[in-house]
């Protein structure tokens, strides 16, 4: 399943008046399905990264992510974070929603993790804001900024792969990169079944709402949700059995071979070359221009 991190929409979220739990849940589920489908549309746009072979893209982005983790200087880390946004724009992804997603997923957790590091208790040094052992220090701020930029840079590169690669191509790339067939097949089935279950749950909520004559209490809502969760769990087990039967019916005997339909061209090799050169340049600048 494409993680929520990768869901992106160019439109701003809509605000509505207070609604029932059933309606809110159904809307959220419908939105989740729509966003997964929208991701395929983003990945099909004729942008810079969408045109790359998924294997080359995975390898190059992995290189950028590793480079981010080795860089120490703030200017270089900032440059790499800016690079992710530039690549997003060149891939026809709106910068605003992209930044929001990167910040929501990585920045928030980065700040949470980095918050203790800004204090004199963890990182002693020149105090900027005195507050006893929780005083904010200059070295502490540098450490926190480095951590946040690293996490944001890594998440940005990861998000770029998710957004510019169709799910089917990503799985094909994983297969080509020798990820075990069963792992790839399981990922594919998981995506398929989650989409199917999302639609089932959405319809359950809508069916309930269509028969509700008055507003249910919060307790009734919770009870209903728990009961439906049990139903969905049972259904998912049944579906898993049926899918296995369907696999057996088509000769499944334990292995899931696939045919690679990927092909590299001059554009991919150029990109790979530029990526390697960029990573090397970033590391060199980090070490030589901004030595620790």
């Amino acid at each position: 399943m494409i993680p929520a991190l990768a869901h992106i929409s160019d439109s701003a979220p809509r605000r509505r008046a207070s609604r029932s739990l059933a309606r809110r849940t159904a809307d959220a589920l419908a939105s989740a399905v729509a966003e997964v489908l929208a991701n395929d549309e983003v990945a099909s746009r004729p942008g810079l990264m969408q045109r790359l072979d998924p294997r080359v893209k995975l390898i190059s982005i992995l290189g950028f992510a590793v480079t981010v983790s080795f860089v120490h200087s703030l200017p270089v880390l900032l440059a790499m974070a800016v690079l992710t946004v530039a690549l997003a724009v060149a891939s026809r992804i709106a910068a605003g929603p992209f930044l929001r997603k990167v910040w929501a997923a990585a920045g928030f957790f980065g700040v949470l993790l980095a918050a203790p590091a800004v204090t004199a208790w963890i990182t002693p040094g020149t105090v900027l804001v005195p507050f006893g052992p929780a005083s904010i220090t200059y070295p502490g701020l540098l450490v926190a900024a480095r951590l946040v930029l690293r996490v944001a840079g890594g998440a940005g590169f990861g998000l770029l792969v998710m957004l510019t690669t169709r799910w089917t191509d990503l799985l094909a790339a994983l297969t080509a990169m020798r990820v075990p067939d069963l792992v790839v097949a399981t990922l594919a089935m998981t995506q398929q079944q989650i989409m199917s279950l999302l639609r089932t749950v959405e319809n359950m909520h809508l069916a309930r709402e269509s028969r509700m004559l008055s507003t249910a209490s919060a307790g009734q809502d919770r009870g209903w949700v728990v009961e439906r969760m049990a139903f969905v769990a049972r259904k998912s087990f049944k579906t898993a059995d049926d899918v296995y039967d369907a696999m057996l019916a088509r000769g499944f005997s334990g292995a899931v071979p696939t045919l690679s339909r990927l092909a590299t061209g001059p554009r991919d090799w150029t990109w790979l070359l530029v990526s390697v050169a960029s990573c090397a340049a970033m590391l060199a600048i980090d070490r030589m221009v901004f030595p620790a």
Binding site: A185, L187, R250, P257
Partner: peptide, 27 residues
């Protein structure tokens, strides 16, 4: 060959191409 009642159950590959290739590859 068996075509199941619910197509959702029978379609478990990542793309339509892989879906069509699944059986022949198993052979």
């Amino acid at each position: 060959g068996f075509v199941f009642q619910e197509a959702d159950v029978q379609l478990f590959c990542s793309s339509v191409f892989d879906e069509l290739a699944f059986g022949p590859l198993q052979l």
